[in-house]
Design a protein around this nucleic acid. Structure first.
Lengths: 341, 341
DNA sequence: GCTGCGAGTCGAAGCGCTTCGACTGAGGTA
DNA sequence: TACCTCAGTCGAAGCGCTTCGACTCGCAGC
């Protein structure tokens, strides 16, 4: 393994000079600089990451904590992780992957051992036990999602309240008067995961504002559960003509269920999804949807983190505006539907 | 930040003694050992990862290279990554996440800078440009999937040849005489990704062995592509009564397509999938399937890697046997189907 | 001609840990 | 009693890098 001393010898300078050439932290004559750079290339020198981290107190590694639990949108996680890694690389950082089941201890472990310089924590719950830990940690962090008390933290998320509201507005604009939100499995609500709660809030508030009926129900992933949930829903509220679904894995089966129940989409039932674009586009008919911009969130998270590492100031809360795309699964309410319940 | 010197002072011993207590590499009297351990806890000491890595030449970090490209089964990747992280933690290692689009340079970067001790590389292609790099690297690696020339490498994979064959056998046992394999998008074949190729091989060989017709076709992810592909297939080979699909995202839409074409599953068409169990179970009807044991592969990969790090010998190629589970999507061939083409 | 200054370079002192060789005593052996 | 052994501990020498202070020029200012 070739060291900085080898490069220095080869170039006929001191090791510190090589270091300064590499970091640019002091002025070096272009003559020496080029000589050093030639030696670096000639010898195939790569600085040793540990030595560098030890001396500079910076590992250039970010931790990414991903959830691996019930009810998560796996492909979205993945897109997200990819965006984090890609963006981190742009800033010359690497990414250490942690699973959420290491819990708060995992965060302390990697932080206090200086394995990483900063943390990105996904899937933050409303009352997340990791939040107090994060507050005490001697390094910056960014949360995806946000907890009840975001004071002093940096949180980034899709504006799910707006997402829920957009769906209602879109459907209400089309004349629908009775809407339902088919949500995530109840386990996700019970965990008080912010995004599910907030969509619900946006949905309900908008329904009230627009003066339409807005009911909501969680929904598990099995076909039978979906069927049961929808049947129950339509029995209790037969006037429903607009459905909003925020539960990626059930989208396919849900279409089957509606077909089996004799409801055509969109003629008898308008359907909106809160999901990734490619999922919406893959269905028949393609679904009108509100997108979760996973790449943008991931990129933004890393950018904020880097900014914090460099002493910059970043806003406590960044909400990315949702984008609604109307596709083939929503249309005007069936004529004559003027009931409100 | 508390250092080993602080602990040593607190316990009234030399720093080296603390180190030996922590590593167990020399015998320490139980008296001192306990005293040191108490000090460690009292001060909340965590060894500095960089210092440790620099001194011991071991970072205790593994690299995991995941693909982020066309046609991959995202949820499977995720299960896999989770298994790798979890298993690595069992062996007191962490995982650095790399995306495949850094290419061979990315591997060299993390290896030569001693950022990691070893590498897990997923989605290896038949003629993968990373393979020669891995061979030269001064550290062990494990590949998921295997390249044409596996000499001197350590490869782990599902036995896709057997998987393809099992599907044929299952269907042939049920009396089906004309089968088709609906594969991954053609991009995946063109990349010569091993798993797709090998399933095809197993499928074809078994079809020949059993004396049944076995045709195959790649399939893109859009609904129209699926519809087109299946229509074409049934037009060219109207006698087909058994379908094998190895392409997770199209499974849902494929069921729609068959329904639309008036083929009931399983009465008119038996359907087998090569996919994760939960995906198979979520469909209607539940699909007979051959499982991809992502967790087992991930766990096995890390275990092999750790064994190599410790100087152990591991087999060049480990093929995990596929497991076929018959569910509701396959049944006996329609009576009277005795044609062979 | 002397001083002052800044650009460019060097040497040395760490960063916090592991590990090697050496030292100390207690206990066993001859 | 003299010697050897071995368990248990210590001190010091690195691991490969960054960074600080100091040194040496050449040049401008007076």
């Amino acid at each position: 393994m070739v060291t900085i001393a080898d490069v220095a010898r080869h170039a006929g300078v001191a090791a510190s000079t090589v270091s300064y050439v590499l970091s640019g932290k002091r002025t070096i004559s272009s003559d020496t600089r080029e000589r050093v750079q030639r030696s670096v290339r000639a010898l195939g020198y790569r600085p040793n990451a540990s030595a560098r981290a030890l001396a500079s107190q910076r590992s250039n590694v970010l931790a990414l904590v991903i959830p691996l639990r019930t009810g998560m949108h796996v492909p979205v996680m993945m897109q997200f992780a990819a965006a984090v890694v890609t963006t981190a690389r742009r800033f010359d950082h690497d990414v250490l992957l942690l699973t959420a089941d290491e819990g708060p201890d995992g965060l302390e472990r990697v932080a206090q051992s200086s394995l990483v310089d900063a943390l990105v924590v996904m899937d933050v719950e409303l009352h997340d036990e990791r939040v107090p830990v994060l507050r005490e940690l001697p390094m910056p962090s960014v949360l995806i999602g946000y907890p009840a008390d975001a004071e002093g933290l940096t949180c980034i998320d899709l504006d799910f309240v707006a997402a829920g509201a957009h769906c209602v507005d879109h459907l209400a604009d089309l004349g629908h008067r009775s809407l339902a939100l088919l949500g995530t499995p109840s386990a996700v609500y019970e965990r008080q995961t912010g995004f599910a709660q907030r969509t619900l809030t946006g949905f309900s508030e908008a329904a009230e504002r627009r003066g339409v009926l807005g009911v909501e129900t969680p929904c598990e992933h099995t076909f039978d559960a979906i069927l049961g949930t929808v049947e129950q829903l339509l029995r209790d509220h037969p006037g429903i003509t607009g459905l909003v679904v925020q539960n990626e894995p059930i989208i396919g089966p849900l279409l089957d269920v509606l077909r089996r129940l004799g409801r055509r989409v969109p003629e008898d039932m308008s359907l909106m999804a809160i999901c990734a674009d490619d999922v919406a586009e893959r269905q028949v008919p393609q679904l009108s949807s509100v997108t979760i911009p996973a790449e943008r969130i991931g990129g933004q998270a890393v950018e904020s983190l880097i900014a914090k590492l460099e002493g910059g100031d970043v806003p406590e809360l960044t909400l990315l505006p949702p984008k609604l795309i109307a596709r083939g699964s929503t249309c005007e309410a069936p004529h004559g539907d003027l009931t409100t319940a």
